[in-house]
Amino acid sequence: MNVGTTKAERTRQFIIEKTAEIFNRKGYAGTSMSDITEATGLTKGSIYGNFENKEEVALAVFEYNRSLVFNSVQAQLEKARSYYEKLMVYGRVYKEVIATVGNRGGCPILNTAVEADDTNIPLQLSAAKALFSWKKNLVNIIVQGTEAGEFQPGVNAEAMAVSIIALIEGGVMMSKVTNDYSNMDHVLLTVQLLVNQIKA
């Protein structure tokens, strides 16, 4: 933690980190205040002293869980030497995410999008924002790769980006539900075939 953070900020971060796995596993509706107090060792008063309500904790936790995945992606993107490799990073990272942190509940974007639906608009909007950001990043990689001559001109970058995201999240869902992570290997091969089709 940063030295410059206040005690209140440190407490908020402590609550977020201690409840991140619980929210990702149980979801917003399934996580109770007693789950939060048990995980943190704090009283309800302490929780409400740092967050207005459970929804505010859930929103902060979603952002924290999303950032863990995002940071893993960013680290791999920086190592990628071509735009083709950059496109393949997302699938590899998500495979690692569900294999190494599968016990944390899987993909936070998928979990939140499915659970929030129309019942929790703030959480739904957070999941949508994360997906839009992911799509924008993929579109930028495809556009830059086309400009660099790696990909064919005239590629529908948005359609390609949406297809890649749908494949990866579908693979995550199938792997989690069936507890068979080889599903992600099939998905990664399909993503590779898709990206190979647009190579110049």
Rank of each mutant, 00 (worst) to 15 (best):
A29W: 15
N111L: 05
I15H: 03
I98A: 00
R25T: 08
A39Q: 03
D35K: 05
K7P: 04
G4S: 15
N24D: 07
S67H: 14
F51M: 09
M88E: 00
E85S: 03
T37K: 01
E78A: 13
G102I: 05
G105E: 01
I109M: 08
T43M: 04
I36N: 00
E96K: 13
G91D: 03
V57E: 10
G27R: 04
G49I: 12
L68V: 10
I16D: 02
G4A: 15
G91Y: 03
R104L: 06
F14Q: 12
P122D: 06
N111E: 07
A75H: 13
E55H: 13
S32Y: 15
I109E: 01
E96W: 13
R25K: 14
T112S: 04
D118W: 02
R104Q: 08
A75K: 15
T19A: 06
T40M: 10
R12K: 15
N71C: 10
T119V: 12
T6E: 11
Y83E: 00
A113L: 06
A39N: 03
R12M: 11
N50Q: 14
I109P: 00
D35E: 08
E63I: 04
G49S: 14
E17W: 03
I16S: 02
R10D: 11
I121D: 04
I15E: 06
R104H: 14
R66D: 14
C107K: 03
S34F: 09
L68T: 04
Q74K: 15
Y48G: 02
K7L: 15
K26D: 08
N120E: 09
P108L: 07
R81E: 09
V101Y: 14
A20R: 00
E17Q: 11
L68K: 11
G27A: 11
D117F: 11
E56R: 08
F14W: 12
Y28I: 06
P108A: 08
N65R: 05
N103D: 13
I36G: 00
Y83M: 06
Q76L: 10
G49Q: 12
A60K: 04
E63T: 12
A29P: 02
V57G: 02
T40N: 09
Y84D: 00
P108C: 08
N111R: 11
A75P: 00
Y64L: 04
E52A: 10
T100N: 15
G102T: 02
T11C: 12
N111C: 07
L87K: 00
R92I: 05
K95A: 04
K79R: 14
Q13H: 12
K79Y: 05
N65P: 04
V73D: 09
N120H: 14
T31E: 10
